[in-house]
Design a protein around this nucleic acid. Structure first.
Lengths: 331, 331
DNA sequence: CTGTTAGCGCGTTCAG
DNA sequence: CTGAACGCGCTAACAG
């Protein structure tokens, strides 16, 4: 493996000149430049970036902390981040934390040991995170919720949930069930807030028995749907906090002989690819996943460049998509 | 940011001793060890891994080349790779190539410039890849097909397709349509081979008109299904080369009033989460995605350790899952 | 067991 | 415009 020294010898020039030829060609005579390039070609020289990074004290890399990479929403966010990083010449280190605090810490370690320059966290922030030394390193939270104590790119979960539920109410629904994520998940909390606000504004009392807890998986949606199908007074609409649970619930409800949307309306959250194609097509909220990724990468790079970020919280617009899984309740 | 030198001063020991205390504690007296640890604690010292890597000429990182990270199958493979790398203390660099050769080259560049030690390629190999200098760097192909010219972890696509089609034949089907991926995609080629073999063994002639080309997306499956539903003599079964297309096709066929599986049986490939829950649940082939990832990472690490790999091609078993989307043809 | 020394490959002075 | 020399932080010899 040839080094810059080999190139300098081959070209009959000094190391410094070769270095300059590479990083500031305009500071070198065309003749020297050519000699350098010829030598590089001949020796198949490739600069050792490990050395460069060491020298420049910059890893040119960012870490993405993702709770679960096999989740389409996260994958899309990552894709957005990646494309921005790519253009900036930065590498993206993948940190699949599997929801483990210990693993998360290990990945944060990467930037503390200069293997990466900053972090993008794709997990919603929750109170007891204060342990995490994320505050000490350049970090951005994407896909977060309200009240995240560091720079954030997110959607308005409260508002989105409210919009969905208001729509159901506008169709004439009054008994609206909800399948939540895990109780303490910040997304759950925010979306539940929106649900309650919509009810309140329509003077509908909140009914605890219309609430079933899931964990954002398809299976849990199916489970939760049983809670409702067993009720004597089945709700006429179901607000599910993500599409996977909605699809699970649809499956469960249909198996009980309920017709969608005539007997019961269903809404989701996320707009998965399949949601357009399930039966009936699902009314849902589309998050601009790629955009969230891009924006958070932009924000992180601002932080790294030590520019005063113009803004430290971005709330991106969602798109409420009405399909055929919702209809007025039966008279 | 304190360095090892600061620690050595604080501890009243030499740099070398500090270094040893960190990498080979048993070579240092307990007293010295304590002094070092105290100093580290006091100064909040974190070793500069950039320097270590430079010194050791090892990036301790691998690159994953993935055509599209927002694809659940790939995401799972990545997850498997990641968990193995994690244990080995290696970082994973994400290379979302978006099917672009240029981007791919850029990522391969990462190992040529020592920013990574090896590569795992998640795209099936095809002939004209020979341009790529992958041969020059430690690389493993995961999710590949037959005849990949470098170490590979894969499933037997031909055999799997054959098993599916043989099953359909065993149910009594004779007119079996197929929705393929893009014609030149190696997966398409392998699976088509299996399809033809199964037909041949049952003495059923191959009929070109029963073949519709898709591109592995849901939408293309829906499109392709129209080709069949318009036929006067609709096939009694449809072998789809992945689940997404199968789900799209199911949607298309149902909209034409066909009943599944009574009027037409459908099979997929991949076993997505939703496939269990669609209506009817899809008969399909499950690939051991995580396992593929783990195994390919293991293989790459063998290569990096310059052990003679015991094996350079692993063919992992698939699981054929029979659900309710398949049934005997109507009499 | 410990300390001294040299150098990894590169960028960056500072003279010429 | 060019080259010699230094040092980034760390590890690996070697000598004590």
């Amino acid at each position: 493996m040839s080094t810059i020294r080999d190139v300098s010898k081959e070209a009959g020039l000094s190391i410094a000149t070769v270095s300059r030829a590479l990083s500031a060609p305009e500071k070198v005579t065309p003749e020297s430049l050519k000699k350098v390039h010829d030598a590089i070609e001949l020796l198949q020289y490739r600069p050792n970036m490990l050395s460069q990074k060491f020298r420049n004290k910059q890893a040119n890399a960012i870490v993405i902390l993702v709770p679960d990479i096999a989740n389409l929403f996260f994958a899309k966010v990552i894709s957005g981040i990646e494309s921005v990083a790519q253009k900036k010449g930065f590498s993206v280190l993948l940190g699949d934390t599997r929801d483990s605090k210990a693993l998360e810490k290990q990945y944060i370690n990467l930037v503390e040991t200069r293997q990466a320059d900053g972090i993008i966290q794709l997990r919603p922030y929750s109170e007891n995170d204060s342990l995490l030394p994320i505050a000490r390193v350049p970090a951005v939270n994407a896909s977060g919720c309200e009240n995240t104590p560091y720079p954030t790119v997110r959607i308005d979960n409260v508002g989105a949930a409210k919009e969905v539920v208001k729509y159901l109410i506008s169709l004439g629904h009054k008994r609206i069930g909800v399948i939540t994520g895990l109780q303490r998940n910040p997304h759950t909390i925010d979306r539940l807030k929106g649900y309650k606000q919509a009810l309140a504004e329509a003077n509908i009392a909140f009914d605890q028995s219309l609430l079933a807890e899931g964990d954002f998986t398809l299976w849990s949606g199916l489970q939760a749907s049983e809670h409702f199908s067993r009720m004597s007074d089945i709700p006429t609409a179901l607000f599910c906090m993500n599409d996977e649970m909605a699809i699970g619930a649809m499956k469960g409800l249909k198996s009980k002989g309920l017709r969608l949307p005539q007997d019961i309306s269903i809404t989701g959250f996320d707009d998965l690819d399949v949601s357009r194609y399930c039966d009936p097509p699902l009314t849902t909220v589309a998050q601009p996943a790629e955009k969230i990724g891009e924006r958070s990468a932009d924000l992180l790079f601002q932080l790294l460049d030590e520019q005063q970020p113009t803004q430290t919280e971005y709330v991106l617009p969602i798109e409420f998509i009405i399909r055929q899984s919702t209809a007025p309740p039966r008279a």
